[in-house]
């Protein structure tokens, strides 16, 4: 009986939003954010679904990076930020005091625009997350390092130089190292803030391949300037403009048959 109810619930969900088949990990309701007096996010409603790649696109200054940083509360490091509304992560409110940010971030990794490995060895970069979360056993750390680097398709390139500086890697390798560093804490979500904007096309391609290969295990929200990238790698796309969401839809719909004229203009390069 309960099973039936769940099924009915599921079907109803599908009827309401045909892109929203999967279970949402993040649900954002009525989110507003101000930097001082400037209203950067206006009434954002968006869910990020489990084991999907959600792309967030839009012109510079539209609030897409701000939204991403709100999801792991990094945005609060900017002085004079005010937030109202609701964001839940797996049903738990994250904007209140109930959940320490450290707790949230141990489940939500972040990859930044510029590769930012620590000035430590490759090994220590990957082991950093597990170590701060209390793993001390050398054999366990070795396993995590190998496993994470393999998932990030970096193992073969670095296995002979694990204890050399991460700064000896190329920019693209460094970014994949940063993704591997996230994977090492076994996150449920990885937030990526324009992860390929500082990389050349070959490195970009490798990062995109990596994203496709891990998306079955981890939910990804990616902010990108590159619309081709969004269409290549994402399942759903949200189009932001001036702090508002103009349209959220399956990536295929957004790029082939968008509902909103503004979306159509943006993806066809008429502005932005």
């Amino acid at each position: 009986m309960t099973l039936l109810k769940e099924r009915i619930g599921d079907v109803q969900l599908r009827v309401m939003d045909n892109t929203n088949w999967r279970k949402p990990v993040y649900e954002t309701n009525g989110l507003n954010l101000w930097y001082g007096a400037s209203h950067a996010l206006k009434n954002i409603n968006l869910s990020i679904n489990e084991k999907e790649v959600t792309a967030i696109i839009g012109p510079s200054g539209c609030g897409k990076s701000t939204y991403l940083k709100t999801l792991n509360r990094m945005v609060e490091m900017v002085p004079d930020v005010n937030i109202s509304g609701n964001i839940t992560f797996k049903g738990n409110n994250i904007l209140g005091k109930e959940m320490p940010v450290e707790m949230l971030r141990s489940k939500v990794g972040m990859v930044f625009q510029k590769p930012n490995p620590f000035p430590k060895s490759i090994y220590e970069n990957i082991a950093f997350g597990p170590k701060i979360h209390g793993i001390k056993n050398k054999a366990t750390l070795d396993m995590i390092v190998e496993d994470s680097l393999k998932k990030a398709a970096l193992w073969d390139e670095v296995k002979d130089r694990l204890h050399k500086s991460a700064y000896g890697l190329s920019g693209g390798q460094q970014q994949r190292l940063c993704i591997a560093r996230c994977l090492a804490i076994d996150p449920e979500v990885i937030l990526m803030d324009e992860p390929t904007s500082a990389l050349d096309p070959v490195s970009t391609h490798k990062v995109e391949e990596l994203i496709s290969s891990i998306k079955n295990d981890v939910t990804i929200a990616i902010v990108t300037h590159n619309m081709q990238q969004a269409s290549r790698i994402s399942d759903r796309t949200a189009f932001f403009l001036n702090g508002e969401i103009i349209e959220v839809n399956s990536t295929a719909t957004i790029f082939n048959n968008p509902n909103d004229r503004l979306t159509n203009d943006y993806i066809n390069g008429r502005f932005g």
Partner: peptide
């Protein structure tokens, strides 16, 4: 960006 990376890991 180094401290951001660290905070980002929790």
């Amino acid at each position: 960006h180094l401290s951001e990376a660290s905070y980002g890991m929790g």
